[in-house]
Amino acid sequence: MATFSDLDSLLHSQLRLAIVSILMNTESAEFTYIKEQTGATAGNLSIQITKLRDAGYITVKKKFKGNYPHTLCMITALGRERFEAYVDSLRDYIK
Protein backbone atom coordinates (compact mmCIF):
# COMPACT_ATOMS: atom_id res chain seq x y z
CA MET A 1 0.00 0.00 0.00
CA ALA A 2 1.30 3.44 -0.93
CA THR A 3 2.00 5.96 1.81
CA PHE A 4 1.62 9.72 1.73
CA SER A 5 5.36 10.08 1.22
CA ASP A 6 5.17 8.02 -2.00
CA LEU A 7 3.22 10.80 -3.66
CA ASP A 8 5.29 13.05 -5.93
CA SER A 9 5.92 16.09 -3.71
CA LEU A 10 6.11 18.41 -6.71
CA LEU A 11 2.62 17.42 -7.82
CA HIS A 12 1.14 17.01 -4.36
CA SER A 13 0.36 20.69 -3.92
CA GLN A 14 -2.95 22.30 -4.78
CA LEU A 15 -1.86 24.82 -7.38
CA ARG A 16 0.79 22.73 -9.13
CA LEU A 17 -1.59 19.77 -9.32
CA ALA A 18 -4.28 22.04 -10.78
CA ILE A 19 -1.84 23.40 -13.39
CA VAL A 20 -0.74 19.93 -14.48
CA SER A 21 -4.35 18.64 -14.50
CA ILE A 22 -5.33 21.46 -16.89
CA LEU A 23 -2.34 20.78 -19.13
CA MET A 24 -3.02 17.02 -19.16
CA ASN A 25 -6.36 17.75 -20.80
CA THR A 26 -5.16 20.42 -23.22
CA GLU A 27 -2.62 20.72 -25.97
CA SER A 28 -1.57 24.14 -24.69
CA ALA A 29 -2.96 26.73 -22.30
CA GLU A 30 -2.11 30.37 -21.82
CA PHE A 31 -1.03 31.78 -18.47
CA THR A 32 -4.20 33.91 -18.31
CA TYR A 33 -6.41 30.86 -18.86
CA ILE A 34 -4.69 28.87 -16.08
CA LYS A 35 -4.93 31.89 -13.77
CA GLU A 36 -8.65 32.20 -14.52
CA GLN A 37 -9.38 28.49 -13.96
CA THR A 38 -7.32 28.13 -10.77
CA GLY A 39 -8.14 31.51 -9.23
CA ALA A 40 -4.47 31.89 -8.23
CA THR A 41 -2.61 35.18 -8.07
CA ALA A 42 -0.27 35.96 -10.97
CA GLY A 43 2.78 35.96 -8.69
CA ASN A 44 2.05 32.60 -7.08
CA LEU A 45 1.11 31.03 -10.41
CA SER A 46 4.32 32.30 -11.98
CA ILE A 47 6.42 30.75 -9.18
CA GLN A 48 4.70 27.35 -9.46
CA ILE A 49 4.94 27.31 -13.26
CA THR A 50 8.67 28.02 -12.98
CA LYS A 51 9.08 25.11 -10.53
CA LEU A 52 7.26 22.73 -12.88
CA ARG A 53 9.26 23.98 -15.85
CA ASP A 54 12.59 23.62 -14.01
CA ALA A 55 11.66 20.02 -13.12
CA GLY A 56 10.93 19.32 -16.79
CA TYR A 57 7.22 18.62 -16.20
CA ILE A 58 6.05 21.42 -18.49
CA THR A 59 7.46 23.66 -21.21
CA VAL A 60 6.81 27.39 -21.35
CA LYS A 61 6.83 29.42 -24.55
CA LYS A 62 6.57 33.18 -24.86
CA LYS A 63 4.88 34.53 -27.96
CA PHE A 64 3.23 37.71 -29.16
CA LYS A 65 -0.38 38.20 -30.17
CA GLY A 66 -0.32 41.59 -31.83
CA ASN A 67 1.68 43.78 -29.48
CA TYR A 68 0.90 41.77 -26.37
CA PRO A 69 3.13 39.05 -24.92
CA HIS A 70 1.50 35.71 -24.07
CA THR A 71 2.88 32.83 -22.05
CA LEU A 72 1.94 29.41 -23.37
CA CYS A 73 2.29 26.28 -21.21
CA MET A 74 2.40 22.68 -22.41
CA ILE A 75 2.93 19.41 -20.60
CA THR A 76 6.01 17.32 -21.45
CA ALA A 77 6.28 13.53 -21.80
CA LEU A 78 7.95 13.47 -18.37
CA GLY A 79 5.14 15.55 -16.85
CA ARG A 80 2.53 13.24 -18.34
CA GLU A 81 4.37 10.19 -17.01
CA ARG A 82 4.72 11.69 -13.51
CA PHE A 83 1.09 12.75 -13.41
CA GLU A 84 -0.06 9.24 -14.33
CA ALA A 85 2.24 7.78 -11.68
CA TYR A 86 0.87 10.30 -9.15
CA VAL A 87 -2.73 9.29 -9.93
CA ASP A 88 -1.79 5.59 -9.55
CA SER A 89 -0.12 6.28 -6.19
CA LEU A 90 -3.11 8.32 -5.11
CA ARG A 91 -5.47 5.44 -5.93
CA ASP A 92 -3.34 3.04 -3.87
CA TYR A 93 -3.12 5.55 -1.02
CA ILE A 94 -6.90 6.08 -0.91
CA LYS A 95 -7.53 2.30 -0.90
Binding site: S9, H12, Q14, R16, L17
Partner: peptide, 8 residues
Protein backbone atom coordinates in the same frame (compact mmCIF):
# COMPACT_ATOMS: atom_id res chain seq x y z
CA UNK B 1 -5.90 28.64 -4.91
CA UNK B 2 -3.27 28.13 -2.24
CA UNK B 3 -0.24 25.92 -2.49
CA UNK B 4 -0.45 24.01 0.76
CA UNK B 5 1.27 20.59 0.75
CA UNK B 6 0.68 19.42 4.32
CA UNK B 7 -3.07 19.98 4.47
CA UNK B 8 -4.04 18.39 1.14
Amino acid sequence: MENNIKKM
